[in-house]
Simulated assay, not measured.
Amino acid sequence: MTDDIQSSAHALRTHPALKKVSAEVMASIISVAEQTNVSAGDFIMREGEPSNDLYFLLSGDAVALRKADDGKDILLNAVPAGECVGELAFLDGGMRTSSVRAESACRLIKISTTELEARDDAAAVIGALKAALASVAVNRARQMSDNMLASLRRELEIKTLQNQFGSFLVFTIAIFLISTALFYLVAEKYVRDVYDPGFSWQAILFLAVPCLLVIKVMKIPLADLGIRREGFKRAALQSIAACVVITIPVAIYLLNFKGPSSDTAARPGATVDLIFMLQYFAHTLFQELGSRGLLQGLFQKFLGDTKGHRAILLTSTVFASLHLAFGIDAVMITFVASIVFGYVYQAQKNLIGVTILHYWLGVLAAFVVAF
């Protein structure tokens, strides 16, 4: 035997698809086997060809392709070394259902159907070989079916994402329009005190409408909004600890360094009392639900922003713009604070932590201004 014949014989005898073939049938198959080489980029077979010869890929890589209606090639699957090639046409005697192109230099064993049919034991050999290859064909069909199903799912996800993005775009435009309208009301002096709880709640309600609509239209689950049990305790404890640390220097400043406030009545600002403390927490919860839970989450989703940097920056920009009515100082402060809140939420993935932190920082700021 030559080296090629010996290597072909060994490859066929050890091939998983042929492990149940008898020694007599294997000898007949080996007798018509020949090795062939195909250069990278060349076709091993083409779709629609009448050939039904069988190939075993010894080395190299190939891909199976099919023509689309527009003439472009559609990738069906990769064909690594060790695979059978052309088994469907061999089994049913029909045309090639797909093309197979060598991606790298390939070495193959060719089993000529014409030479097999010319043998005296052709019926027995071909029957045994077809029976052995049936499982290969079934597995290949199952794989192609799974690939097609996965492709359809991806197309459906892309279509859904496109529809959701349209809703999200309308939502962000609505937020900016509301922000502009609120600023116009203040600029035109229709609102005398922007710190009045009534004005603040009216603003929140205006913003709640597009938020609720986009949550309903996009069917966003509560877990995606940061409302979840998972990580609740850890997020709450981390934020409470941070609040304690932040409170210490503020308390030292208020008790030892801040002078007595003068003309408190003339200075704008919220009245810090029990009602303020209660309503401000609810106010903060609504703000974080809309900004971190909804806006930051959607920015991260549509931008494919795994680390969250761009989502946090964009969310902070939108969040800061909502404070135009309170002045440029408030815009700058809320922008920086929103960056901090964004990274806290990114780390904790739970709305409770960032809500506690936001709430207590706001309370401390009110104390500094009021006392």
Rank of each mutant, 00 (worst) to 15 (best):
Gln162Ile: 09
Gln162Pro: 03
Phe165Arg: 14
Gly166Asp: 01
Gly166Cys: 02
Ser167Asn: 15
Ser167Arg: 15
Phe168Asn: 10
Phe171Pro: 00
Phe171Cys: 09
Phe171Gln: 04
Phe171Asp: 02
Thr172Asp: 00
Ile173Leu: 09
Ala174His: 02
Ala174Trp: 04
Ile175Glu: 01
Ile175Thr: 03
Phe176Ala: 12
Leu177Gln: 06
Ile178Pro: 07
Thr180Ile: 11
Ala181Lys: 00
Leu182Cys: 11
Leu182Asn: 11
Phe183Tyr: 11
Phe183Asp: 05
Leu185Lys: 04
Val186Pro: 03
Val186Gln: 12
Val186Cys: 02
Ala187Gln: 15
Ala187Leu: 10
Ala187Met: 14
Lys189Leu: 02
Tyr190Arg: 14
Val191Met: 03
Val191Gln: 00
Val194Trp: 05
Tyr195Leu: 01
Gly198Met: 09
Phe199Lys: 01
Ser200Lys: 15
Trp201Ala: 00
Gln202Asp: 11
Gln202Trp: 13
Ala203Tyr: 00
Ile204Phe: 06
Leu205Met: 15
Leu205Arg: 12
Phe206Ser: 08
Phe206Trp: 10
Phe206Asn: 04
Phe206Cys: 14
Phe206Lys: 02
Leu207Tyr: 00
Ala208Lys: 04
Val209Arg: 13
Val209Pro: 11
Cys211His: 02
Cys211Ile: 04
Cys211Arg: 01
Leu213Glu: 05
Val214Lys: 12
Val214Gly: 05
Met218Ile: 06
Ile220Thr: 15
Ile220Met: 06
Pro221Tyr: 05
Pro221Trp: 04
Leu222Glu: 01
Leu225Asn: 01
Leu225Pro: 04
Gly226Ser: 12
Gly226Asp: 12
Gly226Val: 06
Arg228Phe: 04
Glu230Asp: 13
Glu230Lys: 15
Phe232Leu: 14
Lys233Ala: 11
Ala236Lys: 04
Ala241Met: 14
Ala242Thr: 13
Ala242Arg: 10
Cys243Asn: 08
Cys243Ser: 12
Val244Ala: 13
Val245Ile: 14
Val245Thr: 09
Val245Tyr: 11
Val245Asn: 06
Ile246Cys: 09
Ile246Leu: 13
Pro249Val: 05
Val250Ser: 05
Ala251Cys: 10
Ile252Pro: 06
Ile252Glu: 00
Ile252Asp: 08
Ile252Arg: 15
Leu254Ser: 04
Leu255Cys: 07
Leu255Asn: 13
Asn256Met: 09
Phe257Leu: 13
Lys258Ser: 10
Gly259Met: 04
Gly259Asp: 07
Gly259His: 05
Ser262Arg: 12
Asp263Lys: 11
Ala265Ile: 07
Ala265Pro: 05
Arg267Tyr: 02
Arg267Asp: 08
Arg267Pro: 03
Pro268Gln: 07
Ala270Ser: 14
Ala270Tyr: 06
Val272Asn: 02
Leu274Ser: 11
Phe276Tyr: 15
Leu278Lys: 13
Leu278Cys: 14
Gln279Ile: 11
Gln279Thr: 10
Gln279Asp: 07
Tyr280Met: 10
Phe281Pro: 01
Ala282His: 08
Ala282Gln: 08
Ala282Thr: 10
His283Asn: 12
His283Glu: 00
His283Trp: 09
Thr284His: 01
Thr284Trp: 03
Thr284Glu: 00
Thr284Gly: 08
Thr284Tyr: 02
Phe286Lys: 03
Phe286Gly: 08
Phe286Val: 14
Phe286Trp: 11
Glu288Asp: 09
Leu289Trp: 02
Ser291Cys: 14
Ser291Trp: 15
Ser291Tyr: 14
Ser291Leu: 14
Arg292Ala: 01
Gly293Glu: 07
Leu294Thr: 12
Leu295Ala: 03
Leu295Cys: 10
Leu295Asp: 07
Gln296Asp: 07
Gly297Thr: 12
Gly297Met: 07
